[in-house]
Design a protein around this nucleic acid. Structure first.
Lengths: 208, 208
DNA sequence: CGTAAAGTCTTACGTTGTAAATTTATGGCG
DNA sequence: CGCCATAAATTTACAACGTAAGACTTTACG
Protein backbone atom coordinates (compact mmCIF):
# COMPACT_ATOMS: atom_id res chain seq x y z
CA UNK A 1 0.00 0.00 0.00
CA UNK A 2 2.92 2.39 -0.27
CA UNK A 3 2.71 5.68 -1.98
CA UNK A 4 5.81 7.80 -1.53
CA UNK A 5 5.73 9.44 1.88
CA UNK A 6 5.93 13.20 1.88
CA UNK A 7 7.45 14.87 4.94
CA UNK A 8 3.88 15.87 5.76
CA UNK A 9 2.78 12.24 5.67
CA UNK A 10 5.62 11.32 7.96
CA UNK A 11 4.92 13.97 10.51
CA UNK A 12 1.22 13.25 10.37
CA UNK A 13 1.82 9.61 11.20
CA UNK A 14 4.25 10.57 13.91
CA UNK A 15 1.63 12.86 15.37
CA UNK A 16 -1.09 10.27 15.26
CA UNK A 17 1.17 7.76 16.94
CA UNK A 18 2.15 10.26 19.63
CA UNK A 19 -1.50 11.07 20.26
CA UNK A 20 -2.27 7.42 20.85
CA UNK A 21 0.91 6.87 22.87
CA UNK A 22 0.16 9.86 25.05
CA UNK A 23 -3.24 8.51 26.01
CA UNK A 24 -1.97 5.00 26.64
CA UNK A 25 1.04 6.26 28.61
CA UNK A 26 -1.25 8.37 30.76
CA UNK A 27 -3.58 5.47 31.39
CA UNK A 28 -1.15 2.62 31.99
CA UNK A 29 2.30 4.16 32.36
CA UNK A 30 4.94 4.11 29.62
CA UNK A 31 6.41 0.76 30.68
CA UNK A 32 3.11 -1.06 30.34
CA UNK A 33 2.42 0.16 26.81
CA UNK A 34 3.75 -2.03 24.03
CA UNK A 35 4.63 -1.23 20.46
CA UNK A 36 2.13 -3.86 19.39
CA UNK A 37 -0.64 -2.03 21.24
CA UNK A 38 0.25 1.27 19.62
CA UNK A 39 0.37 -0.37 16.21
CA UNK A 40 -2.96 -2.12 16.71
CA UNK A 41 -4.58 1.13 17.82
CA UNK A 42 -3.34 2.74 14.62
CA UNK A 43 -4.41 -0.19 12.48
CA UNK A 44 -0.91 -1.01 11.25
CA UNK A 45 1.44 -3.91 11.82
CA UNK A 46 3.81 -4.11 14.75
CA UNK A 47 6.84 -3.09 12.69
CA UNK A 48 5.39 -0.03 10.99
CA UNK A 49 6.21 2.37 13.84
CA UNK A 50 9.87 1.57 13.24
CA UNK A 51 9.69 3.37 9.91
CA UNK A 52 8.91 6.56 11.83
CA UNK A 53 10.82 6.15 15.06
CA UNK A 54 14.17 4.54 15.78
CA UNK A 55 12.85 2.57 18.74
CA UNK A 56 10.54 2.71 21.72
CA UNK A 57 12.84 5.11 23.53
CA UNK A 58 12.48 7.59 20.69
CA UNK A 59 8.70 7.36 20.95
CA UNK A 60 8.88 8.14 24.64
CA UNK A 61 11.17 11.10 23.94
CA UNK A 62 8.77 12.38 21.28
CA UNK A 63 5.78 12.17 23.59
CA UNK A 64 7.73 13.94 26.32
CA UNK A 65 8.76 16.65 23.87
CA UNK A 66 5.15 17.18 22.83
CA UNK A 67 4.07 17.47 26.46
CA UNK A 68 6.75 20.11 27.00
CA UNK A 69 5.58 21.92 23.89
CA UNK A 70 1.98 22.05 25.08
CA UNK A 71 3.20 23.25 28.44
CA UNK A 72 5.35 25.95 26.82
CA UNK A 73 2.39 26.96 24.69
CA UNK A 74 0.22 27.38 27.78
CA UNK A 75 2.85 29.61 29.35
CA UNK A 76 3.31 31.65 26.18
CA UNK A 77 -0.45 32.10 25.89
CA UNK A 78 -0.59 33.40 29.44
CA UNK A 79 2.26 35.79 28.68
CA UNK A 80 0.53 37.05 25.53
CA UNK A 81 -2.80 37.63 27.26
CA UNK A 82 -3.44 41.31 28.01
CA UNK A 83 -3.11 42.16 31.68
CA UNK A 84 -3.54 45.35 33.66
CA UNK A 85 0.13 45.32 34.61
CA UNK A 86 3.32 43.30 34.46
CA UNK A 87 2.87 41.89 37.94
CA UNK A 88 -0.52 40.48 37.09
CA UNK A 89 0.83 38.96 33.89
CA UNK A 90 3.62 37.40 35.86
CA UNK A 91 1.18 35.84 38.28
CA UNK A 92 -0.91 34.58 35.40
CA UNK A 93 2.08 32.76 33.97
CA UNK A 94 2.68 31.08 37.30
CA UNK A 95 -0.99 30.15 37.49
CA UNK A 96 -0.88 28.73 33.97
CA UNK A 97 2.14 26.66 34.92
CA UNK A 98 0.43 25.17 37.94
CA UNK A 99 -2.87 24.68 36.16
CA UNK A 100 -1.21 22.77 33.35
CA UNK A 101 0.60 20.51 35.80
CA UNK A 102 -2.45 19.74 37.91
CA UNK A 103 -4.81 19.30 34.98
CA UNK A 104 -2.34 17.14 33.06
CA UNK A 105 -0.52 15.32 35.83
CA UNK A 106 0.50 12.40 33.65
CA UNK A 107 1.94 14.73 31.04
CA UNK A 108 3.81 16.65 33.71
CA UNK A 109 5.21 13.44 35.21
CA UNK A 110 6.39 12.40 31.78
CA UNK A 111 8.05 15.76 31.12
CA UNK A 112 10.13 15.63 34.27
CA UNK A 113 10.54 11.90 34.41
CA UNK A 114 13.97 10.99 35.56
CA UNK A 115 14.11 7.52 34.08
CA UNK A 116 15.16 8.33 30.53
CA UNK A 117 18.81 9.24 30.97
CA UNK A 118 19.66 10.17 27.40
CA UNK A 119 16.63 12.39 26.85
CA UNK A 120 18.65 15.54 26.22
CA UNK A 121 20.15 13.82 23.20
CA UNK A 122 16.79 14.01 21.43
CA UNK A 123 16.77 17.47 19.84
CA UNK A 124 12.98 17.80 19.94
CA UNK A 125 12.93 17.11 23.64
CA UNK A 126 15.79 19.50 24.39
CA UNK A 127 14.20 22.28 22.36
CA UNK A 128 10.76 21.86 23.89
CA UNK A 129 12.17 21.81 27.41
CA UNK A 130 14.21 24.93 26.71
CA UNK A 131 11.08 26.63 25.42
CA UNK A 132 9.27 26.13 28.72
CA UNK A 133 12.28 27.29 30.68
CA UNK A 134 12.58 30.37 28.52
CA UNK A 135 9.14 31.65 29.41
CA UNK A 136 9.78 31.04 33.09
CA UNK A 137 12.63 33.53 32.98
CA UNK A 138 11.15 35.83 30.33
CA UNK A 139 8.34 36.99 32.55
CA UNK A 140 10.88 38.31 35.01
CA UNK A 141 12.48 40.22 32.20
CA UNK A 142 9.05 41.74 31.57
CA UNK A 143 8.92 42.83 35.19
CA UNK A 144 12.41 44.27 34.94
CA UNK A 145 11.49 46.13 31.74
CA UNK A 146 8.51 47.60 33.56
CA UNK A 147 10.85 48.78 36.31
CA UNK A 148 9.16 46.48 38.82
CA UNK A 149 12.15 44.24 39.38
CA UNK A 150 15.85 44.88 39.73
CA UNK A 151 17.96 41.82 40.01
CA UNK A 152 19.12 38.73 38.20
CA UNK A 153 16.15 37.78 36.05
CA UNK A 154 17.66 34.42 35.12
CA UNK A 155 18.40 33.48 38.70
CA UNK A 156 15.08 34.58 40.14
CA UNK A 157 13.27 33.03 37.19
CA UNK A 158 14.87 29.71 38.01
CA UNK A 159 14.10 30.13 41.71
CA UNK A 160 10.48 30.82 40.89
CA UNK A 161 10.41 27.79 38.60
CA UNK A 162 11.79 25.57 41.34
CA UNK A 163 9.23 26.99 43.78
CA UNK A 164 6.44 25.73 41.54
CA UNK A 165 8.11 22.48 40.57
CA UNK A 166 8.93 21.30 44.09
CA UNK A 167 5.39 21.36 45.47
CA UNK A 168 3.95 19.94 42.27
CA UNK A 169 6.37 17.01 42.25
CA UNK A 170 5.77 16.28 45.92
CA UNK A 171 2.07 16.12 45.25
CA UNK A 172 2.45 13.98 42.14
CA UNK A 173 4.69 11.59 44.06
CA UNK A 174 1.78 11.04 46.43
CA UNK A 175 3.85 12.21 49.39
CA UNK A 176 1.72 15.19 50.37
CA UNK A 177 -0.91 14.22 52.93
CA UNK A 178 -3.99 16.32 53.64
CA UNK A 179 -4.34 19.13 54.44
CA UNK A 180 -1.22 19.85 52.40
CA UNK A 181 -1.18 20.11 48.65
CA UNK A 182 0.82 21.76 45.90
CA UNK A 183 -1.39 24.87 45.77
CA UNK A 184 -0.88 25.62 49.41
CA UNK A 185 2.90 25.17 49.37
CA UNK A 186 3.18 27.25 46.22
CA UNK A 187 1.21 30.06 47.82
CA UNK A 188 3.61 30.05 50.75
CA UNK A 189 6.73 29.83 48.63
CA UNK A 190 5.78 32.47 46.08
CA UNK A 191 4.77 34.83 48.88
CA UNK A 192 8.24 34.44 50.38
CA UNK A 193 9.95 34.99 47.03
CA UNK A 194 7.87 38.03 46.35
CA UNK A 195 8.70 39.66 49.68
CA UNK A 196 12.35 38.77 49.28
CA UNK A 197 12.76 40.17 45.82
CA UNK A 198 10.21 42.93 45.67
CA UNK A 199 10.84 44.59 48.99
CA UNK A 200 9.10 44.20 52.36
CA UNK A 201 5.91 45.81 51.07
CA UNK A 202 6.05 44.50 47.53
CA UNK A 203 3.00 43.57 45.49
CA UNK A 204 0.83 40.83 46.97
CA UNK A 205 1.35 37.77 44.89
CA UNK A 206 -0.14 34.36 45.11
CA UNK A 207 -0.01 32.47 41.91
CA UNK A 208 -3.64 33.07 41.03
CA UNK B 1 19.74 -27.41 50.16
CA UNK B 2 16.80 -26.35 52.20
CA UNK B 3 17.01 -25.85 55.89
CA UNK B 4 13.99 -24.25 57.49
CA UNK B 5 14.15 -20.50 56.99
CA UNK B 6 14.04 -18.43 60.12
CA UNK B 7 12.66 -14.91 59.88
CA UNK B 8 16.25 -13.79 60.25
CA UNK B 9 17.28 -15.86 57.23
CA UNK B 10 14.47 -14.36 55.26
CA UNK B 11 15.30 -10.79 56.08
CA UNK B 12 18.99 -11.42 55.51
CA UNK B 13 18.32 -12.69 52.02
CA UNK B 14 15.96 -9.80 51.35
CA UNK B 15 18.69 -7.42 52.44
CA UNK B 16 21.34 -9.02 50.30
CA UNK B 17 19.02 -8.91 47.31
CA UNK B 18 18.19 -5.28 47.92
CA UNK B 19 21.87 -4.41 48.20
CA UNK B 20 22.53 -5.94 44.82
CA UNK B 21 19.39 -4.45 43.30
CA UNK B 22 20.28 -1.01 44.58
CA UNK B 23 23.65 -1.07 42.87
CA UNK B 24 22.29 -2.44 39.62
CA UNK B 25 19.37 -0.01 39.63
CA UNK B 26 21.77 2.87 40.16
CA UNK B 27 24.01 1.72 37.36
CA UNK B 28 21.50 0.74 34.69
CA UNK B 29 18.12 2.02 35.84
CA UNK B 30 15.42 -0.19 37.33
CA UNK B 31 13.87 -1.10 33.97
CA UNK B 32 17.11 -2.49 32.60
CA UNK B 33 17.75 -4.80 35.53
CA UNK B 34 16.32 -8.30 35.26
CA UNK B 35 15.39 -10.81 37.90
CA UNK B 36 17.80 -13.22 36.27
CA UNK B 37 20.66 -10.75 36.74
CA UNK B 38 19.83 -10.27 40.39
CA UNK B 39 19.61 -14.00 40.91
CA UNK B 40 22.89 -14.65 39.14
CA UNK B 41 24.62 -11.98 41.21
CA UNK B 42 23.36 -13.74 44.33
CA UNK B 43 24.32 -17.17 43.05
CA UNK B 44 20.78 -18.54 43.07
CA UNK B 45 18.37 -19.58 40.39
CA UNK B 46 16.03 -17.17 38.63
CA UNK B 47 13.00 -18.23 40.65
CA UNK B 48 14.50 -18.02 44.12
CA UNK B 49 13.81 -14.30 44.58
CA UNK B 50 10.12 -15.14 44.31
CA UNK B 51 10.29 -16.94 47.63
CA UNK B 52 11.18 -13.60 49.22
CA UNK B 53 9.31 -11.05 47.11
CA UNK B 54 5.93 -11.23 45.44
CA UNK B 55 7.25 -9.87 42.15
CA UNK B 56 9.63 -7.37 40.59
CA UNK B 57 7.44 -4.48 41.66
CA UNK B 58 7.82 -5.49 45.28
CA UNK B 59 11.60 -5.53 44.89
CA UNK B 60 11.51 -2.01 43.50
CA UNK B 61 9.30 -0.89 46.39
CA UNK B 62 11.68 -2.49 48.90
CA UNK B 63 14.71 -0.76 47.40
CA UNK B 64 12.87 2.56 47.39
CA UNK B 65 11.89 2.05 51.02
CA UNK B 66 15.48 1.37 51.98
CA UNK B 67 16.64 4.50 50.21
CA UNK B 68 14.06 6.51 52.14
CA UNK B 69 15.23 4.90 55.35
CA UNK B 70 18.84 5.84 54.74
CA UNK B 71 17.71 9.36 53.89
CA UNK B 72 15.62 9.56 57.06
CA UNK B 73 18.59 8.27 59.04
CA UNK B 74 20.82 11.01 57.64
CA UNK B 75 18.28 13.63 58.66
CA UNK B 76 17.84 12.15 62.13
CA UNK B 77 21.61 12.04 62.60
CA UNK B 78 21.84 15.71 61.71
CA UNK B 79 19.06 16.49 64.14
CA UNK B 80 20.75 14.51 66.90
CA UNK B 81 24.14 16.19 66.39
CA UNK B 82 24.89 18.83 69.01
CA UNK B 83 24.67 22.37 67.70
CA UNK B 84 25.23 25.76 69.23
CA UNK B 85 21.57 26.66 68.75
CA UNK B 86 18.32 25.51 67.19
CA UNK B 87 18.80 27.60 64.06
CA UNK B 88 22.11 26.00 63.32
CA UNK B 89 20.66 22.55 63.87
CA UNK B 90 17.87 23.41 61.51
CA UNK B 91 20.31 24.48 58.83
CA UNK B 92 22.30 21.32 59.37
CA UNK B 93 19.23 19.21 58.70
CA UNK B 94 18.64 21.06 55.44
CA UNK B 95 22.28 20.58 54.53
CA UNK B 96 22.06 16.87 55.30
CA UNK B 97 18.99 16.61 53.10
CA UNK B 98 20.72 18.24 50.16
CA UNK B 99 23.96 16.39 50.68
CA UNK B 100 22.21 13.03 50.70
CA UNK B 101 20.36 13.87 47.48
CA UNK B 102 23.43 15.10 45.62
CA UNK B 103 25.72 12.35 46.85
CA UNK B 104 23.15 9.63 46.15
CA UNK B 105 21.33 10.98 43.13
CA UNK B 106 20.18 7.57 41.92
CA UNK B 107 18.77 6.74 45.34
CA UNK B 108 17.01 10.09 45.48
CA UNK B 109 15.54 9.61 42.01
CA UNK B 110 14.26 6.22 43.05
CA UNK B 111 12.69 7.58 46.24
CA UNK B 112 10.67 10.20 44.42
CA UNK B 113 10.15 8.27 41.25
CA UNK B 114 6.71 8.83 39.92
CA UNK B 115 6.42 5.69 37.86
CA UNK B 116 5.34 3.20 40.52
CA UNK B 117 1.73 4.19 41.10
CA UNK B 118 0.83 1.74 43.85
CA UNK B 119 3.94 2.43 45.96
CA UNK B 120 1.99 3.71 48.97
CA UNK B 121 0.39 0.29 49.21
CA UNK B 122 3.72 -1.19 50.32
CA UNK B 123 3.83 -0.61 54.08
CA UNK B 124 7.63 -0.46 54.23
CA UNK B 125 7.72 2.24 51.61
CA UNK B 126 4.94 4.27 53.22
CA UNK B 127 6.58 4.08 56.63
CA UNK B 128 10.04 5.02 55.38
CA UNK B 129 8.70 7.96 53.41
CA UNK B 130 6.74 9.18 56.43
CA UNK B 131 9.90 8.96 58.51
CA UNK B 132 11.74 11.37 56.22
CA UNK B 133 8.81 13.76 56.14
CA UNK B 134 8.56 13.67 59.91
CA UNK B 135 12.07 15.01 60.43
CA UNK B 136 11.46 17.74 57.88
CA UNK B 137 8.69 19.14 60.05
CA UNK B 138 10.19 18.17 63.40
CA UNK B 139 13.08 20.57 63.10
CA UNK B 140 10.62 23.45 62.85
CA UNK B 141 9.03 22.24 66.04
CA UNK B 142 12.49 22.44 67.58
CA UNK B 143 12.73 26.05 66.48
CA UNK B 144 9.27 26.75 67.87
CA UNK B 145 10.19 25.11 71.17
CA UNK B 146 13.24 27.36 71.34
CA UNK B 147 11.00 30.37 70.81
CA UNK B 148 12.65 31.12 67.48
CA UNK B 149 9.62 30.41 65.35
CA UNK B 150 5.95 31.19 65.74
CA UNK B 151 3.74 29.76 63.08
CA UNK B 152 2.45 26.59 61.56
CA UNK B 153 5.36 24.17 61.92
CA UNK B 154 3.73 21.58 59.69
CA UNK B 155 3.00 24.06 56.92
CA UNK B 156 6.38 25.75 56.97
CA UNK B 157 8.12 22.39 57.30
CA UNK B 158 6.43 21.28 54.11
CA UNK B 159 7.26 24.56 52.41
CA UNK B 160 10.89 24.15 53.35
CA UNK B 161 10.83 20.56 52.13
CA UNK B 162 9.43 21.66 48.77
CA UNK B 163 12.07 24.39 48.56
CA UNK B 164 14.78 21.73 48.72
CA UNK B 165 12.99 19.17 46.58
CA UNK B 166 12.20 21.48 43.66
CA UNK B 167 15.77 22.53 42.88
CA UNK B 168 17.11 19.04 43.45
CA UNK B 169 14.60 17.47 41.08
CA UNK B 170 15.23 20.10 38.42
CA UNK B 171 18.93 19.34 38.59
CA UNK B 172 18.43 15.57 38.56
CA UNK B 173 16.15 15.91 35.53
CA UNK B 174 19.07 17.49 33.71
CA UNK B 175 17.10 20.66 33.08
CA UNK B 176 19.33 23.07 34.96
CA UNK B 177 21.97 24.57 32.69
CA UNK B 178 25.11 26.24 33.98
CA UNK B 179 25.56 28.45 35.88
CA UNK B 180 22.44 27.25 37.66
CA UNK B 181 22.34 24.27 39.96
CA UNK B 182 20.35 22.98 42.89
CA UNK B 183 22.64 24.54 45.51
CA UNK B 184 22.21 28.00 44.11
CA UNK B 185 18.44 27.81 43.83
CA UNK B 186 18.16 26.36 47.31
CA UNK B 187 20.23 29.19 48.71
CA UNK B 188 17.89 31.70 47.12
CA UNK B 189 14.72 29.91 48.17
CA UNK B 190 15.71 29.23 51.76
CA UNK B 191 16.84 32.83 52.15
CA UNK B 192 13.39 33.98 51.05
CA UNK B 193 11.62 31.56 53.38
CA UNK B 194 13.81 32.63 56.26
CA UNK B 195 13.08 36.33 55.75
CA UNK B 196 9.39 35.60 55.30
CA UNK B 197 8.97 33.51 58.40
CA UNK B 198 11.62 34.86 60.71
CA UNK B 199 11.07 38.57 60.25
CA UNK B 200 12.82 41.08 57.97
CA UNK B 201 16.05 40.86 59.99
CA UNK B 202 15.83 37.24 60.97
CA UNK B 203 18.87 34.95 61.27
CA UNK B 204 20.89 34.57 58.10
CA UNK B 205 20.21 31.13 56.78
CA UNK B 206 21.59 29.34 53.81
CA UNK B 207 21.39 25.63 54.06
CA UNK B 208 25.01 25.18 55.06
C1' DC C 1 5.32 -0.75 -19.57
C1' DG C 2 8.82 -2.65 -16.76
C1' DT C 3 11.76 -2.21 -13.01
C1' DA C 4 14.14 -0.23 -8.88
C1' DA C 5 13.01 1.23 -4.80
C1' DA C 6 9.97 2.60 -0.86
C1' DG C 7 6.60 1.19 2.29
C1' DT C 8 4.43 -2.48 4.71
C1' DC C 9 3.68 -7.02 6.50
C1' DT C 10 5.07 -11.59 8.09
C1' DT C 11 8.16 -14.35 10.19
C1' DA C 12 11.58 -15.25 13.47
C1' DC C 13 14.79 -14.76 17.54
C1' DG C 14 16.50 -13.81 21.96
C1' DT C 15 14.96 -12.07 26.40
C1' DT C 16 11.74 -11.07 29.90
C1' DG C 17 8.56 -11.97 34.13
C1' DT C 18 6.74 -15.63 36.27
C1' DA C 19 3.49 -20.19 36.66
C1' DA C 20 3.91 -25.03 37.16
C1' DA C 21 6.17 -29.13 37.84
C1' DT C 22 10.23 -31.30 39.70
C1' DT C 23 14.06 -32.16 42.58
C1' DT C 24 16.46 -31.96 46.90
C1' DA C 25 17.42 -31.76 51.65
C1' DT C 26 15.86 -31.62 56.38
C1' DG C 27 13.48 -31.76 60.96
C1' DG C 28 10.04 -34.29 63.51
C1' DC C 29 7.84 -38.70 64.61
C1' DG C 30 7.33 -43.80 65.01
C1' DC D 1 17.78 -44.55 64.13
C1' DG D 2 15.26 -44.35 59.80
C1' DC D 3 11.56 -42.65 57.08
C1' DC D 4 8.90 -39.25 55.04
C1' DA D 5 5.94 -34.98 54.73
C1' DT D 6 7.19 -30.80 53.46
C1' DA D 7 9.80 -26.46 52.81
C1' DA D 8 13.17 -24.60 49.74
C1' DA D 9 15.36 -24.43 45.48
C1' DT D 10 15.76 -25.62 40.77
C1' DT D 11 14.33 -26.79 36.21
C1' DT D 12 11.19 -26.45 32.75
C1' DA D 13 7.78 -24.06 30.24
C1' DC D 14 5.02 -20.21 28.25
C1' DA D 15 3.11 -16.02 26.65
C1' DA D 16 4.52 -11.49 25.61
C1' DC D 17 7.99 -8.21 24.51
C1' DG D 18 11.34 -5.29 21.38
C1' DT D 19 12.99 -5.55 17.11
C1' DA D 20 16.15 -7.81 13.05
C1' DA D 21 15.58 -9.98 8.68
C1' DG D 22 13.25 -11.11 4.77
C1' DA D 23 9.12 -11.29 1.76
C1' DC D 24 5.59 -8.94 -0.48
C1' DT D 25 3.26 -5.04 -2.75
C1' DT D 26 2.60 -0.77 -4.68
C1' DT D 27 4.24 3.35 -7.02
C1' DA D 28 7.20 6.76 -9.72
C1' DC D 29 10.15 7.17 -13.37
C1' DG D 30 13.03 5.74 -17.55
Amino acid sequence: MPKRLTPADVSEFRNRLCDVAEHLFAEHGPDAVTIRQLAAELGVSAMTPYRYFADKDAILAAVRARAFDRHAQALENARATPATNATERSNRIGAAYVRFALENPEAYKLMFDVRQPGAEAYPDYARAAARSRATMTAHLEDLAAAGLFHGDTQLVGHIYWAALHGPIMLQLSGLLLPPFDAERLITGLTAAITKEHFGPRGPESGHD
